[in-house]
């Protein structure tokens, strides 16, 4: 018996695990394919039907989706809590901005660069983080989130980062003479990146490495005794997670055409964490809901009441956690379970 099968054969204990394993092992049936095609079709058609501002907002939702996907790999799949993913987002954004602004590199090529930089940074940060657990890890990542924007302000780096002023970027045009305006092109570009990111993440966790990550989350000691190299996998999870969030940051910089240290404060990390929990921890498609929540709900709260927008936002969060403590993913699972009990 290989290690690989022995982990897969362990009976999944919690509902989340069971659902996750079921989800991973199933091949999509005709109905799911139909749903996927309709969703994809409507998301591709969307930028030709709505206003430019809404296209921009939808693009940002996708950017946050990629970032939350990354956080989900670390926190949801591998069980390491991070309050500092805003730092990786910032690192990605600055990598892209500096490459485009100082060295005139094309926006497309900044993405692999941001991915590489953030993977290395994340992996290296993951090494000391190996020794920390729970709240202590939360504090360490939190420190990272607080330190990073300050680093970009430091005078020795001002040649590249332009200090507090930040860097302004140009908006890319659609390539190959496609009949698209800049916003539409950026949206479709980001959409393609999001789909690629999602497929990669899905395939990653469906395979041996993904099972090892989940085994570490559920019982690190048992995973280790099964032969999983926990130190390596946990650092890798940090690296890959940072890679995703860094790519999101680079895309975000391209879409917003601006980076400055103060766009990447601690509240960005908190927003990503909230998005993760609202979407569903450990459920990859939840990232999309999380991204939408991060972008739209604060604005909605503001439109309900200017003076009490924070209170409205907080109440929405608390109510959501009552109604669906395990996020949109948990709610969908519960609904499906309820429906199948009722009508089978």
């Amino acid at each position: 018996m290989t290690i690989e099968t022995s982990i897969a054969e362990q009976p999944p204990t919690t509902t989340t695990q069971r659902a996750a394993v079921a989800q991973l092992q199933r091949r999509p049936n005709a109905r799911q394919l139909a749903i996927a095609v309709v969703c994809l079709g409507s998301t591709i058609a969307a930028p030709f039907l709505v206003s430019n501002f809404l296209i921009f907002q939808m693009t940002m939702v996708l950017v946050y989706t990629i970032a939350i996907l990354g956080l989900n790999i670390l926190t949801g799949i591998n069980g390491q809590l991070s309050l500092g993913h805003g730092a990786f987002y910032a690192a990605g954004a600055y990598t892209a901005a500096i490459l485009m602004d100082r060295w005139g590199i094309g926006y497309f090529w900044t993405l692999p660069a941001a991915a590489l930089v953030c993977f290395v940074v994340g992996f290296l940060f993951g090494l000391p983080a190996l020794r920390l657990e729970g709240v202590y890890l939360a504090l360490a990542t939190f420190a990272l989130a607080v330190v990073t924007p300050q680093l970009f302000k430091l005078s020795p780096f001002e040649n590249w980062t332009a200090g507090v002023t930040g860097i302004t970027l140009a908006k890319p045009d659609a390539p190959f003479g496609l009949p698209l305006d800049q916003d539409q092109w950026l949206y479709l570009f980001t959409l393609a990146m999001t789909i690629a990111a999602y497929v990669c993440a899905h395939n990653l966790i469906a395979r041996r490495g993904g099972r090892a990550l989940m085994a570490i989350r559920d019982n690190p000691i048992a995973a280790q005794s099964m032969g999983v190299n926990t130190a390596l996998y946990k650092s890798l999870a940090f690296g890959i997670s940072a890679l995703y969030t860094g790519v999101a940051g680079a895309l975000g910089a391209i879409v917003l055409q601006f980076v400055a240290p103060d766009s990447f404060t601690f509240s960005l990390s908190i927003a990503l964490l909230v998005g993760l929990v609202v979407g569903g921890v450990g459920w990859l498609p939840g990232a999309l809901f999380g991204g939408a929540f991060v972008l739209f709900v604060p604005n909605l709260a503001e439109s309900v009441s200017k003076g009490l927008s924070g209170a409205v936002y907080g109440l929405v969060l608390i109510t959501l956690m009552y109604v669906m403590p395990s996020g949109v993913g948990g709610l969908l699972r519960a609904t499906r379970a309820f429906a199948s009990k009722r009508y089978d």
Binding site: V281, I318, S326
Partner: peptide, 18 residues
């Protein structure tokens, strides 16, 4: 879950501050 608690705390933070 721990994270749901964390989000409720963030919610409380926003409510009290506001």
């Amino acid at each position: 879950a721990v994270l749901s608690h964390a989000v409720v705390f963030i919610g409380l933070y926003a409510v009290i501050n506001s």
